[in-house]
Design a protein around this nucleic acid. Structure first.
Length: 1099
RNA sequence: GGGCGGGUAGCUCAGUUGGCUAGAGCAUUCGCUUUACAUGCGAGAGGUCCAGGGUUCGAGUCCCUGCCUGCCCA
């Protein structure tokens, strides 16, 4: 096998005949895949040369891989995603595009860190803190190396034609530089800021996590009802300060018109009851809210409650966010279906630092809360989730008994205390009631801990800025945008981004419309460290107290003035000359100035050492993984400075950016697609398209596009998600996942690829039932049999073809244009299929592509063409040329989906000298005689011939009809029978087809002598005879049944067709051609029925 | 709550501007060691296109309502 692929055998045409015969009967993927891959590698077949693009020798085609996370091996979803990309890459490479498929992996910050932390705990019993940051990061690095290799090997085994010489990793030096530069530019432009917000906090990993790193789980919990005593806030004392708060009695409330107050002992202190599922958070309450529509609101206006134990006085505020109890609602019955209304008391404890909704309420009622001398936000938890007075809670009072307790224990303790204690001056316990309640609770994906809404300082990207999210929406093509926002093209990237299928543009657009600023900091160790150093200075001169709001940026001169009192210092402009950007803030809570110094990507280690020696410390946080992913299309090509990245990056950005197509799953439209568009449009220069081919190109990269820059890609193809046989997501925990390597082991890479392509329709989910392969014990799926069988079919079709062409001599010139029906038909089918495939590729219709190939190879080529040419191929030179060319075209057309088997077959087929077939152009291979760089077949549309196809269909209909009779009559398959047909019914070509394919020995106009069977064909009656030996003839039962069925089928048709024609509106309004067609059908059905009836009568 | 899908043969799915008597693969039935392929060849059987309305000469396809189911966002 390998010998024949060596150049030395090129001239040895005598060996070709035997080459085909030597091929084994079955295609065994394992015998070929590794060798084929080695040939691709040796020829550097997938290495893109940007200079060919820049010299104008080829058009570019570029895909960047959605970098797989290094957390784990690839699963079948990756196999799908990457197969689809490879089909695009391979087809365009063959079409002559200079094709770059950029490969790489993603560091996947929290996911990878969590995996390694679990491993560390399991293997060594250590936490990351015990190991220390540096050693821990080294461990993650080793883990990453291990999985990066596994992933790369998996991709290679799948046949992915990535440019492996250009593989990147989101944390390698080239990508890291891009991250630092992007951060710097956004920081400098004020689009990155530091903010104190509520985030999803994972108390185990002790980091902020994003919503997509959380999941909801239903838990059995309880609603707890807490009584808060009502008070008057103290009155102003002559010497300043306030008197003690005074209890409010029920009598007083009753006088204020509080409904039901008179039912309580009049002299006792009154209270309100709040319902909560998290009673421990009461320590951070800063208000109690009531709905203004609540009848009790009026009597409570201007009153306060005193938080038990803490003693904090907080206002009662009115906010219509508060849910009215069911009984108070307009439709109490309807309200009973709303669990919140059922459980509500009408009073809501407001804990702005520990609940997102309360946070909003707190901001709305800031003045009322602060008037009590409290901050709106009181954070009563430490980062590990324990109650703490060190993180923003100062008025502990008698609540110190809770301090230091973890969340769960604190909850228990609060309930115990509230149960044991009473409202002052009464016997009413503070804990009113407990009701069981089942609700969904947010958990951290990575640690499984319950998420705590937590107030913390984080870095944000101001994506709400017009130059980011709105600019991303302007990128959409006009027809995929909301009509009212359509506008003309203003810049490079405007109006050129297109989603396939189009409906996903809506997801994309709505995301940007409702977007909030993006929290990019994570309190992790694995990731890109935030490139900001900071230093605080106390406001020693006390000169600016109260003149700046929290976290307000201040003039740099102010910090410089304080700074200048130190013996050695660098002022802001000196720092900026070193490549830093400086921003100064005042923090009122600590009465300090903070200088943030952000390093550009060009800042040297020396400069960093210098500022660190001055007391600047680098931020310990790392960036959200998506920050580096967002830069992927440009970071992988050397942005911001390809020259610094190395010679391999020469011309890459200019040749391949914007890339052509991004191929991904819908779940990351918002997380990734959006951010790539925002970042590239912001960071890449506005006139990139025009300038990238000029000598100024690299210099222009220093300019930000400010939202008017180019796009990272023009097309976004969103493909289906693979689920298991029950429609569940494939997951590790369910063990319902498939490893592509298992599928490759059981079925071969091509089989997997063909099957996933065939499954890829425009829907959003596809199901993949999984079974265990009995032979190997591996997880696989019977679905892949389809692809395996198809590979085998190609293999055998090629084997047959080579045995035919190898056995005869085949001249390479002076071949007449084929005239036989079957050859013209084959060429016509080929032309039709080629067009269909070209259209399918252009529209990402993979299933259609695969199906068209299947029909072309299996149905047209194997079932009909190869069977039909058997009698003539040995001597018909024109037919030999058609056979050779057709197989060659099929190999080329199929190669993008099934690269291995086609390449393996091509090794043989290319050695057969080819004669030119008019209308078919097959370009030579560009590298190493490989099919993967051979020309995409050009099949002239003039080869499509409707008359030929119709003539063939006619013959095929007759053949099928005869086969049916044969089957019904149990005619021996090898038996050659006689067809009685009027002279002139069939021409020579059609007769030959019928004889070959229907097992007909003789076609004669004479009437059958005896023992014949009648059959209808095109309104006339034909007969078949010589079906059986005379002795066996005589049983007419089968024939009766067959004819009865023909009659009843036709009667059904007649009824349908007559009904249609008798409809008066039909003849008037339907197109005449349609009416004519129906009439013809009716005539045929009637004739068929009559013929069958006559035959039945004659029996 | 808002948005987007899906519901067609036993199973998995096609069905592109409304127009053959609704297709494919698997499974199933019958017959074949037909000399490329049994991972194959030939021939069958199998569907109230979720339900109900509407538009139309004509609806799996378009519109409305409902039911079931999945995903995304809040």
């Amino acid at each position: 096998m390998t010998e024949t692929s060596k150049p030395s055998s090129d001239s040895n045409s005598s060996g070709l005949g035997s080459a085909g015969a030597e091929l084994p009967k079955q295609y065994k993927p394992a015998d070929h895949e590794e060798r084929i891959r080695a040939r691709w590698d040796a020829a550097k077949a997938f290495h893109a040369d940007p200079q060919r693009v820049l010299r104008g020798e080829a058009k570019p085609y570029c895909i960047v891989i959605p970098p797989p996370n290094v957390t784990d091996r690839l699963h079948l979803g990756h196999a799908l995603n990457n197969t689809l990309q490879d089909v695009l890459a391979r087809s365009h490479r063959m079409m002559g595009f200079e094709t770059l498929w950029m490969a790489g992996t993603d560091h996947a910050g929290i996911a990878t860190q969590a995996v390694v932390e679990r491993r560390l705990k399991k293997d060594e019993g250590l936490t990351r803190q015990q190991l220390g940051r540096e050693k821990f990061v080294a461990k993650v690095q080793a883990f990453k190396d291990e999985y990066e290799k596994i992933i790369t090997d998996q991709l290679k085994l799948m046949g992915c034609s990535c440019d492996w010489d250009r593989q990147r990793f989101t944390m390698d030096e080239v990508c890291a530089r891009a991250v630092r530069e992007a951060f710097f530019r956004l920081f400098k432009d004020g689009l990155i800021y530091r903010g104190k917000r509520l985030v999803n906090w994972d108390p185990v990993l002790q980091t902020a996590v994003s919503d997509d790193e959380c999941y909801d789980e239903e838990l059995d919990s309880s609603f707890y009802y807490l009584r808060y005593p009502l008070v008057h806030r103290g009155t102003a004392l002559p010497g300043g300060g306030l008197s003690d708060p005074q209890p409010i009695t029920w009598n007083e409330l009753a006088r204020g018109g509080y409904p039901g107050a008179e039912q309580h002992p009049g002299e006792e202190q009154a209270w309100v009851t709040v319902a909560t599922t998290r009673p421990e958070t009461y320590l951070g309450d800063t208000a109690v809210a009531v709905n203004p529509k609540d009848q009790r609101a009026n009597a409570l206006r201007g009153l306060f409650v005193e938080l038990p134990l803490v003693g904090r006085i907080i206002p009662i505020i009115e906010d219509d966010y508060v849910v009215l109890p069911a009984a108070m609602q307009a439709d109490p019955e309807a309200a009973k279906s709303d669990p919140k209304a059922v459980f509500a008391t009408g009073f809501l404890k407001v804990t702005p630092a520990h609940d997102p909704n309360d946070y909003e309420i707190g901001l709305r009622h800031k003045a009322a809360i602060e008037a009590c001398g409290n901050a709106v936000l009181i954070n009563m938890l430490a980062p590990d989730g324990s109650v703490s007075d060190k993180h923003g809670w100062t008025d502990v009072g008698d609540a110190h008994l809770f301090v230091g307790l973890p969340r769960e224990k604190a909850r228990k303790k609060v309930l115990e205390e509230f149960k044991a204690r009473t409202v002052d001056n009464s016997s009413v316990p503070l804990l009113a009631e407990t009701k069981p309640y089942r609700h969904s609770v947010k958990h951290s994906d990575r640690s499984k801990a319950i998420i705590e809404p937590y107030l913390s300082d984080q870095w944000y990207v101001k994506v709400t800025d017009d130059r980011l999210a709105p600019a991303a929406n302007r990128a959409l093509v006009a027809e995929q945008r909301k009509a009212e926002q359509q506008s003309g093209r203003a810049a490079d990237g405007d109006g050129a981004l297109r989603f396939y299928p189009a409906r996903y543009a809506k997801t994309y657009e709505q995301w940007h419309d409702g977007i909030r600023d993006w929290c990019i900091s994570r309190q992790l160790w694995w990731g890109h460290r935030v490139p900001v150093w900071s230093k605080s200075l106390a406001d020693s001169a006390n000169e600016n107290v109260n003149s700046f709001a929290a976290n307000e940026e201040i003039p740099k001169s102010m910090f410089d003035r304080l700074w200048s009192t130190f013996p050695s210092h660098l002022n802001a402009s000196q720092l900026e000359n070193m490549g830093f950007w400086v921003r100064d803030f005042f923090v009122p809570s600590t009465n300090e100035y903070v200088r943030y110094v952000c390093a550009s990507s060009g800042v040297t280690a020396i400069s960093v050492g210098q500022i660190e020696s001055l007391g600047f410390a680098q931020d310990t946080d790392v960036l959200d993984t998506w920050f580096s992913s967002a830069l992927w299309p440009i970071s992988t090509m050397g942005w911001p400075d390809p020259r610094a990245a190395g010679p391999a990056f020469d011309g890459l950005l200019q040749a391949f950016n914007p890339t052509t197509t991004l191929c991904t799953a819908r779940e990351i439209i918002t997380l990734w697609v959006s951010r790539m568009v925002m970042f590239e449009r912001y960071l890449m220069p506005e006139k990139w398209q025009a300038e990238k081919t000029t000598p100024k190109a690299l210099e222009s990269l220093a300019q930000n596009g400010q939202g008017r820059g180019p796009l990272p890609f023009k097309n976004v193809f969103i493909h289906a998600v693979i689920q298991d046989g029950e429609g569940r997501k494939m997951s590790k925990t369910l063990r319902n996942g498939l490893d592509p390597l298992d599928v490759i082991a059981t079925h071969g890479s091509d089989a997997m690829r063909f099957t996933v392509c065939q499954m890829t329709t425009q829907t959003q989910d596809v199901r993949m039932p999984m079974t265990v392969d009995p032979a190997t014990g591996r997880n696989t799926s019977p679905k892949f049999d389809l692809g395996r069988n198809f590979s085998n079919k190609l293999w055998n079709a090629a084997r047959f073809t080579m045995s035919m062409l190898g056995a005869s001599s085949h001249p390479t010139s002076d071949i007449p244009h084929p005239t036989s029906l079957i050859d013209r038909w084959m060429l016509s089918r080929l032309a039709t299929a080629t067009k269909e495939i070209n259209d399918s590729i252009a529209n990402f219709e993979y299933s259609n592509y695969a199906q068209t190939m299947y029909d072309l190879l299996w149905r047209d080529f194997c079932d009909w063409y190869l069977e039909a040419i058997k009698p003539t191929i040995a001597t018909d030179k024109a037919q030999q040329a058609v056979l050779r060319a057709t197989l060659d075209c099929i190999l080329r057309l199929l190669h993008p989906i099934m690269p291995y088997v086609t390449e393996a077959v091509y090794e043989q087929v290319r050695l057969i000298p080819a004669a030119t077939v008019r209308g078919i152009s097959l370009g030579a291979s560009r590298k190493g005689d490989l099919l993967c760089t051979a020309g995409w077949p050009e099949v002239n549309a003039s080869l499509r011939d409707e008359k030929t196809e119709a003539a063939f269909e006619r013959a095929r209909a007759l053949i099928t009809a005869i086969r049916e009779v044969r089957s019904q009559h149990a005619v021996q398959p090898k038996r050659r029978i006689t067809l009685h047909a009027p002279a002139g019914l069939l021409d020579a070509d059609a007769s030959a087809l019928v004889q070959t394919l229907a097992g007909v020995e003789t076609i004669t106009p004479s009437a059958p002598a005896a023992n014949s069977v009648a059959m209808a064909f095109e309104s006339s009656q034909l007969h078949l005879s010589n079906l059986k030996d005379a002795a066996a003839a005589g049983d007419t039962t089968a024939e009766r049944e067959r004819l009865q069925k023909v009659i009843s089928d036709n009667e059904k048709s007649i009824a349908t067709l007559e009904g249609r024609l008798n409809n008066p509106g039909y003849a008037q309004k339907a197109p005449p051609a349609m009416v004519k067609q129906t009439q013809d059908q009716l005539a045929k059905a009637k004739a068929d029925k009559d013929a069958a009836a006559a035959a039945l009568a004659a029996l």
